[in-house]
């Protein structure tokens, strides 16, 4: 039982870390601010969800697990609002999104 929980937790944490890695690579490699925001919010929000799930299954009590799970929606709200604010500000400053080769922008 204990080993099963440990394995489940490790798997969830690894999946979470992979999402974080993908988000970070995207932040460094993507061409403009909108694409970077896209990769950051998508990948990191999912990554955080998996990390929190991975920690919650290890928690000593149900109360502790619930407290951990409470972090996720709070961060989701904050990060969604922040990325929206950054994107809106970038748009106001006249930064045009880079479009792909097929598009004519």
């Amino acid at each position: 039982m204990n080993v099963a929980i440990e394995l489940l937790s490790a798997a969830l944490l690894l999946v979470g870390a992979t999402f974080y890695l993908a988000g970070t690579v995207g932040l460094l490699r993507f061409p403009d601010v909108y694409a970077r925001l896209h990769t950051l919010t998508k990948a990191d929000n999912l990554g955080l969800g998996f990390i929190i799930l991975g920690l919650a299954v290890q928690a000593d009590s149900l109360m502790m697990a619930c407290k951990l799970l409470l972090i996720w929606p709070l961060v989701l709200m904050a990060s969604a609002t922040v990325s929206y604010s950054i994107a809106r500000r970038a748009d106001e400053m006249g930064i045009a999104p880079i479009s792909g080769d097929g598009d004519s922008a």
């Binding site: 709070l74 709200m77 904050a78 609002t81 929206y84 604010s85 809106r88």
Partner: peptide, 15 residues
Amino acid sequence: IDPVLATLARLLVPL
């Protein structure tokens, strides 16, 4: 007033 930021503030401030 930015509706998104205002919504976040309304949700977070009581907490």
